[in-house]
C-alpha cells in the first residue's frame, strides 16, 4: 500500500515539475509549481517528517507562491508573452544534457555499495521502525519521528544555535534588501522642487550612463 501511494505521488510530482518547466503561460507554470510543492509535502509525509511537510506547505504555498504570483503580475506577464516560450534548439541540447546527468545520477544511486559500517544505498530497503511507540519510546530516533516539533525545538536552540541566529540575520538582510531595492528612488526630502530636479537629472543621466562594454 505504501509503495503504491509512493508511486502515485512520485509520478504526479515529476509531471508537475515538467509542467512548471514547459508551461507557456507563467501563471500556469506557477500553478504547476504549487502542485509540485504540495506533492513534495506529501513525500515528506511518506517519509514521516510531517512537521516539515506542514512547514513546507506553510512557507512555500502560503508565501513563496504568492510572491512569485505578484512578481508575475508586476512584470505585466499576465498571458505569458514570447519570452516564456522555450526555443526548440535550446530544448534539445538542454534535454540531452539533463538526460545524461539523470542517467549518471540514477546509476550512481543504484550502484552505491556502502562503506565500512554503512550499508550501501541500494541495500537499504527498510527504514528503522519507530512503532509501536511504547516499545521504543526511549530511542532518540523514535522521539524524533513521533514528536518532531518538540525535538526540533530542543535541537534548534542548543546544537543548532549558531545557524538559527544566522538564519535570523539572513531573513532581516533579505527583508531590508528587498525593500531597499523595491522602493522608488524618491528624494528623502519632501519638497516637490527637489523631486522635479531629481527626476530631470535622472532622465539626463540615463542617456549618458556608461553601457557595459562588449567582449
Amino acid at each position: 500500500m505504501n509503495q503504491i501511494l509512493f508511486g502515485v505521488i512520485a509520478t504526479l510530482g515529476v509531471l508537475a515539475a515538467l509542467g512548471t518547466v514547459l508551461a507557456r503561460n507563467l501563471v500556469h507554470a506557477a500553478l504547476f509549481l504549487v502542485a509540485f510543492f504540495f506533492l513534495v509535502a506529501c513525500q515528506f509525509v511518506m517519509l514521516e517528517a510531517e512537521f516539515l511537510a506542514a512547514v513546507q506547505v506553510l512557507v512555500y504555498i502560503g508565501a513563496v507562491a504568492i510572491i512569485l504570483m505578484f512578481g508575475i503580475m508586476l512584470t505585466r506577464n499576465i498571458q505569458g508573452d514570447d519570452t516564456t516560450t522555450v526555443s526548440k534548439a535550446g530544448f534539445i541540447s538542454g534535454g540531452l544534457a539533463a538526460a545524461g546527468l539523470l542517467a549518471v545520477l540514477v546509476f550512481g544511486i543504484l550502484d552505491d555499495e556502502g562503506r565500512t559500517g554503512r550499508a550501501g544505498w541500494r541495500d537499504v530497503t527498510t527504514r528503522p521502525a519507530v512503532y509501536p511507540v511504547a516499545a521504543r519510546a526511549s530511542a532518540e530516533q523514535t522521539k524524533a519521528v513521533n514528536n518532531m516539533g518538540f525535538v526540533v525545538g530542543r535541537e534548534l536552540l542548543t546544537r543548532y544555535l549558531i545557524p538559527f541566529e544566522v538564519a535570523g540575520v539572513l531573513l532581516t538582510a533579505a527583508l531590508v534588501g528587498a525593500i531597499a531595492l523595491a522602493v522608488q528612488d524618491g528624494p528623502s526630502t519632501d519638497d516637490p522642487a527637489e523631486r522635479a530636479k531629481k527626476a530631470a537629472e535622472h532622465t539626463a543621466a540615463a542617456e549618458t550612463e556608461p553601457q557595459l562594454t562588449s567582449a
Partner: peptide, 23 residues
C-alpha cells in the same frame, strides 16, 4: 503529532485560491 501547524498551513492555502479566482 504536529496537528496545529498542519492546521495553520492548510488554512494559508486559501490566500492563493483567492488570488487565482481574481486572476
Amino acid at each position: 503529532p504536529s496537528g496545529l501547524i498542519y492546521l495553520i498551513a492548510v488554512s494559508s492555502i486559501s490566500a492563493l485560491g483567492i488570488f487565482l479566482a481574481g486572476w
